[in-house]
Amino acid sequence: MKPKSLTSLVLLTITILATASAKVTAADAPSIFDRKNIAALWIVPYDAKKRGPEERALMLKELGVTKLAYDWRAEHVPTFNAEVEAMQKHGIEITAWWYPARNPQILDAIKSHGIHPQLWVCGSRTITTTNDAERIEAEAARIRPIAEDAAALGCKVGLYNHREPWFEEQDHQIAIIERLKRGGITNVGIVFNFHHWRGSLTEFPALFKRIQPYLIAVNLNGMRADTSQYPGVRYIGSDESELAMIRVVEASGWRGPVGVIHERGNLDAAEGIKGNLQGLEWVQKELRRAGSGGPKPQEPTPRQSED
């Protein structure tokens, strides 16, 4: 069988499995594609226009995006409060906050403004044990105080599959969450990023079924046919595999928040988010009827992610 034919067969199989496993219909639950359900990701340090809080909030408002997953760097720490205030002023909800380590300045901003974002946490690069059981214990011990801080503010913690290969495995994340639950910590879930996943397309429906009970956010991206390759940040709809993967997500009945990612330092963040929103509209049409979306969206600057 030729590689292209094999890819088509895999995508067809995923479509059939997703349809068979559907738990709700479009009439039973809100669409995950509703603009009010979409969050913009990584538009702070990667914006070519280097917008400040007020300009960024106005940009999102003009795009019709009402949610922000807030990524930041050291230079943004002094403007944490200004960021929250600008978003609140323009009706933008900060649904998630990048949280690489315990940070009292973030917690103070969250508390003083009465917001409840998810705190997104990556794996540790300093935990070096190769023994799974030991790694699970070590990660659970690291995340416990973060989860306790979050719980005191009415927030959840999201395990974010990025930065460290062991932590990117969803079954390892599930094991960490279950270990925390046994210790009384119940506010930790999974943030699933398409662009940091390198599994098999044929295994994706089963994987999504396993992670769904723990899932608190999904971030979309264009995905190559060979998902074992790092795709980089690509427009939704511009590649071969994300349509079938999104079909699985939609058919599952899961209706949590969905993120669209910019993360291009050489491009205006407004253009990056707009390109993804247009790609998502194409995907939505194709899910209803194959071929109805017209030409596939085009990725303007195919490149690796900068992070």
Results as ranks from 00 to 15, higher is better:
K156R: 14
E54H: 11
N37C: 01
I146Y: 01
T126S: 13
R303V: 13
L180D: 12
H196W: 12
P257R: 10
K156T: 09
S252R: 00
G275E: 00
E55M: 00
A138V: 04
R224K: 09
L280G: 04
A86E: 07
E62G: 02
I176F: 01
R144G: 08
R234G: 11
I38F: 01
V260A: 09
R179Q: 15
G256K: 04
S200T: 08
A225G: 10
G293K: 03
L11P: 00
V77K: 07
A86P: 00
A152H: 07
T202S: 15
R198P: 00
A69R: 11
K89M: 07
L107H: 05
I43D: 06
T19K: 11
V258R: 02
T128R: 02
W98S: 04
I143D: 10
M1R: 12
D268S: 07
L9W: 14
V188K: 06
N219M: 08
E299V: 02
W254G: 03
G114N: 10
S238W: 05
K181F: 04
A29V: 09
Y235S: 06
V258D: 01
V24E: 15
E242F: 00
A48K: 08
D149F: 08
M59T: 01
N266A: 14
H113S: 13
E242R: 02
E168F: 04
A40F: 03
N131W: 00
T130E: 14
L207M: 11
T202I: 15
Q304A: 15
Y214S: 06
V84E: 10
S8T: 15
I211G: 02
F167M: 14
N187D: 04
H196G: 09
T202Q: 14
V44N: 12
F167W: 00
N221I: 08
A22I: 05
G158V: 01
G123N: 09
T66N: 06
E134D: 10
I94D: 02
D239V: 05
S252Q: 05
I143W: 07
E54F: 00
H195V: 06
E164N: 11
G158N: 02
I14A: 14
I43S: 05
H116C: 03
D108M: 02
R56P: 06
S8W: 10
A270C: 00
L107G: 10
I177G: 09
K23Y: 15
Q173G: 13
E263D: 10
G256A: 09
E299P: 04
T202P: 04
G154E: 12
Y230V: 06
I185W: 04
C155W: 02
E240W: 04
G154V: 06
A48G: 10
E148F: 06
A141V: 13
A27Y: 03
G256L: 08
